[in-house]
Design a protein around this nucleic acid. Structure first.
Ligand SMILES: [Zn+2]
Ligand SMILES: [Zn+2]
Ligand SMILES: [Zn+2]
Ligand SMILES: [Zn+2]
Lengths: 134, 134
DNA sequence: AAGCACATGAGAATCATTGTCAACTCGGCG
DNA sequence: CGCCGAGTTGACAATGATTCTCATGTGCTT
């Protein structure tokens, strides 16, 4: 199981990487690298900002965390399930729900193929205001 | 018809705004604000970078141009049709095709409603390598 | 022509993200 | 155990896109 690995992928389990992995497991919404850096400092497990960025990048590459661009283009991270999915995010409080849409996956593939595009990937996010924020 | 308005929405048709609007009509892929700024300079219709940014923002707000975030979070702009649509973009050359997916629109709406999210919006882009770039 | 709200642009300021690089740590090896 | 090279870290500088400032210019109305 990949559920509670002490550190990202097959990298050296350093104190810093473990701290970041734990931090990522401690919340459920998307947070910026800076937020995570602060969170770690407050926890008494300070990790250099550059290291936070580097570690997060690694985790994104290995699929351990998802990266989402906010509407103003900033990166935010969240630990997610490992199957392909998209997000329904509350614009106000950040509450996030993972959603799957086989139909959408099929559709994007079909559209791409139809136009002769290969190596297809896609991004799809849904934003709204959740019930609690109304 | 909104096809060849001299300037963005109901704003004053200044030389700069007209130049930007014309520039946007002269290409078919997504370009960064800086690219557009350069293009204008080369054309002999120099427009201040800040003005390019401001004008582009206005055009995005009024729906005259679409804004797309590249994978590294930078904004790029393209003059598009005024109906809601998404993009199939070549990762290599930038060739862009507008696509519509009624099914997807319906799906996102349903998902959001199902989870009690209101004021729903979504972003969806498809990336791939076009036939010419293979 | 006069007045004024709107528009422009050069340059400074922001600010997220990345690059540098010397110091440090891990693990394996003798 | 002590040594060594590859992998890591972090303080700080550097980058680069986007936004702000604000003094100056312009479009349009009266
Ligand atoms: Zn996710
Ligand atoms: Zn998908
Ligand atoms: Zn478009
Ligand atoms: Zn749509």
């Amino acid at each position: 199981m990949t559920s509670t690995d002490p550190a990202p992928s097959g990298l050296r389990p350093t104190r810093q990487r473990i701290a970041v992995a734990e931090a990522m497991a401690s919340f459920d919404d998307f947070r910026s690298a800076q937020d995570i850096h602060e969170l770690l400092s407050r926890r008494g497990e300070p990790v250099g900002l550059a290291t936070v960025y580097r570690t997060l990048q690694r985790m994104v590459e290995s699929g351990e965390v998802d990266l989402l661009r906010t509407e103003d283009g900033e990166a935010s991270y969240r630990r997610c399930s490992d199957t392909h999915h998209h997000h329904l995010v509350c614009r106000t409080c950040g509450a996030t729900i993972e959603v799957e849409g086989p139909g959408v996956e099929r559709w994007t593939r079909a559209i791409a193929e139809e136009h002769g595009y290969a190596q297809v990937s896609h991004t799809l996010e849904i934003f709204g205001t959740c019930a609690a924020c109304r």
